[in-house]
Simulated scan of single mutants.
Amino acid sequence: MSQSEVESKLKKLIIDTLGDELSLDNLEPEDKFEELGINSVIFIKTVVMIEGTFDIEFEDDDLDVNNFVDLKSLTKHVYSKINAI
């Protein structure tokens, strides 16, 4: 799976989590999660969906929303996890 495919799937997961507040067209890789209203609870819900979708597991140290400030940083992390399998 390419990094752009990972990003596309992550965008959809984030939009599904946030509901009608965003669309695929207006979520950019550099948009800050904090500015999008993604708090620690929403982030953990998103991580659970990511783990199931990509069949990966986040380490406990990775479960801090501050480790991933935007879609770009989250995409890099998920992509590296997929390629480490």
Rank of each mutant, 00 (worst) to 15 (best):
I56Q: 06
S73N: 08
E21G: 12
T53K: 15
D16A: 12
K72H: 14
D64W: 11
L22T: 03
N66P: 04
I85S: 08
A84M: 08
F43N: 04
L18N: 07
I15Q: 09
E28P: 01
S80T: 06
Y79T: 04
F58Q: 05
I14E: 01
K81G: 05
S23M: 14
V65H: 05
D60R: 15
I42E: 08
A84V: 11
T75F: 02
I14Y: 02
Y79W: 06
F54H: 10
T53D: 10
S80V: 02
L71F: 01
D61I: 12
L71C: 05
S2T: 09
Q3N: 15
E57S: 14
S73L: 13
L36H: 11
E28W: 13
V6A: 11
N83E: 06
K32D: 13
K9I: 09
N66W: 09
L63E: 14
G37K: 15
D31S: 14
I42D: 03
D62M: 15
K9M: 12
L10D: 04
N83P: 04
E59H: 08
L24G: 13
D16M: 05
I38R: 08
N26V: 03
S8Y: 09
V41T: 06
D61Q: 09
L18G: 08
L63V: 01
L27N: 04
K81A: 13
V78A: 04
I44R: 05
D70I: 05
D55S: 10
D25M: 08
D25H: 15
L10C: 00
L10F: 01
S8M: 07
D55T: 07
I15M: 12
D25P: 08
S23L: 13
L22I: 07
K76P: 03
K12A: 01
V69L: 15
K12M: 00
F33S: 03
V48Y: 04
P29W: 00
F43K: 01
H77W: 07
H77L: 06
I15K: 09
I56N: 04
K9N: 08
K11G: 01
P29G: 02
V48Q: 02
E5R: 09
Y79Q: 11
L24T: 04
F33W: 04
V6Y: 10
V69F: 13
K76Q: 14
E28K: 15
E30M: 12
I15T: 11
D31E: 10
D64C: 07
I50Q: 00
I42M: 12
D61R: 14
T46P: 02
G52C: 14
D25A: 06
